[in-house]
Design a protein around this nucleic acid. Structure first.
Lengths: 196, 196, 196, 196
DNA sequence: CATGAATGAGATTTCATTCAT
DNA sequence: CATGAATGAAATCTCATTCAT
């Protein structure tokens, strides 16, 4: 149990370091050399905790998004109406990834051989879908009656993500707050019952 | 006088083959071996047309998006109101990339050394922004007076793109038409003057 | 006869261009691309005049040194005493190669397979030896009686060559005239009968 | 704690093997394949010790000449007059390179980009100049008063080197001792005060 | 378990040579 | 003959993985 705990700690330390590495301006790709240097361990040590590099990357992505969801829940906890929740969902996303993380490079890492699509996207989508869906469903009464929300989570993630990407692409002079406000306006305008 | 006459189209042939390659289910990365095999030429030939692999990839991305914009213009030509135009913008995007292209893997390819962000995103954003902006501006009278559309192009690209990604991730059973319809509803609901 | 003459002309044109190329500051090696570009012909054309690249290089070296010897003879013709002749031998050498020729890179090009040394040096040495030796022998009466001159040609070529190399290595601020004078003093001091 | 302990001598082992390789009759160029085979390591290992091939070659040249100078000092230590020292300088040079080393092929390897000459010669010249100059200066009282010795080091290196090259070019039947004696006579005759 | 040097498979790149035009 | 695009063998270089310590 102690050993396992130690294991888990080291694994997390490596994954955390790898995530931090993706936020650095001079990030230079997910090589084992880069990851081990960032984690302060030897390359060989990586293989004591992960079968191979692909496994490490898949677990890295899962680690980052488990983290994301956990912190998102805490972040949203104080808010009780959908309007506020959506705003802070956007806000949180920008804060979590907004600076410079290149974690999304992993999206196309293949996770299994065989027929059909099999990228790391497969991990992201169901998770993201379920969290946004559960938010929406627990506030159904605030949402307009006649609209479909089946694809809404994807609209949300796509839009936020593009704001992040834009920041990554264009550099420091992006008005993130304005973008969040505009996105929030679009979404709530569509989604929420008119208050009067 | 000319030797095997330099095929002016060879460069395009290589880029086209590389793009087609990204749509294949068994796509396995942008190696020079893969690209040359897809193009039916030797690896050495690649270097007769491109200084190095990075140059090829940047030009590939530009080629794909030049193609995208050109075809999009033709596709939208018959439509004269913003409602229809937006619908077919979404529609076109899905058709163009919708199946399986992994061209977006290139988004993070660095295009220059130096300070700040410098990925291939830099190429994509201004182009996409300008085309969507010009569409919106030439239909200003159909848009609600009081709303900001500064960030609108990014929401649009982000949303469409996420639908494409979802298809890539989850495979064949995605209701693309439904997604387009819903996205279209969100956007037009926010953007367009209520018709009465 | 006309055809052969044309051949010879083209061959010489290529070799001359290749030699000129070695004097350029941005000289970048004896690639077939470089040589053909310098000569203003296609790469394929090289192979109409030379069996392969090695043959071209060997003939280039021979061409340069045949040229050297021929011009040297003309250059020395006006002088009739060994003192002057030696001075102008040095002078000529510096003028011929002195700026920036990297022709000496070819010295180690192998010219035959098999046992023993077989570099292009083999071509240079006998020629240089014979010309210096013949100069010395036709002025035997000016040379001290009791000294050996068997290795003298090598001393001369080595010393001059090093002056050239020094210029190549250290750049523009070398006092070539001073170096020639000093070398001349050493050589004549050793070699010539004291005049009184 | 240490893995296969980093052999501090591995770098030197590779350089030494590369130098030895240049003395082999069947030496066939400085390819990474040749060098790694000579050193008994894999090609990949070369890149654990040298950034790239050019760096390896520059360091190889420096290694060889550092070795040369160190051993030369020991070799000359017993001798206290310039006459003897010069003789054994020649003698040593022949012994060190005299057989078959093709290390001098490296002389034109470029060491930096930019304007002006920049070959490996730049490394050789100052070193050789300083060692010969310091020998001459510490024996100034044995040298004739009125002669310039500014260029002397270059004549010495050039002459010795040409003897080495001649051996390389012409093979085994060269009278090295005779050549050394003659060179020694030339130099001392010019340089040293007449003893009487 | 940790290390990190060594490996070698595979990726990128160069370039002498060929050959269809 | 001249051309120069295409080739492919060989060179340089990268990097995930192994394994002796």
């Amino acid at each position: 149990m102690a050993a396992r705990k130690k294991d888990e700690g080291m694994k997390e330390q490596i994954l955390e370091a790898a995530f931090e590495m993706t936020k650095r301006e001079d990030f230079d790709g997910f090589t084992t050399a880069n990851i081990s240097a960032a984690a302060g361990v030897s390359e060989g040590t990586l293989y004591n905790y992960f079968k191979d590099k692909k496994t490490l990357l898949v677990q890295l992505f899962q680690y980052v998004f488990d983290n994301y969801y956990k912190n998102l829940n805490d972040y949203l906890e104080p808010f009780d109406n959908l309007n506020d929740i959506l705003y802070h969902l956007f806000d949180f996303h920008i804060k979590f990834f907004g600076k410079t993380s290149k974690i999304f490079l992993l999206l196309f890492v293949p996770i299994e051989k065989g027929i059909g699509p099999h990228s790391i996207f497969r991990i992201l989508f169901p998770k993201y879908f379920s969290i946004v869906t559960s938010i929406l469903e627990s506030h159904r009464d605030e949402i307009k009656k006649d609209i479909s929300i089946e694809n809404f989570p994807f609209f949300i993630i796509g839009s936020i993500q593009m704001i992040v990407f834009r920041k990554l692409a264009l550099g420091g002079d992006v008005d993130l707050t304005g973008a969040i406000n505009e996105l929030h306006a679009i979404v709530t305008n569509y989604l929420l019952k008119k208050e009067n």
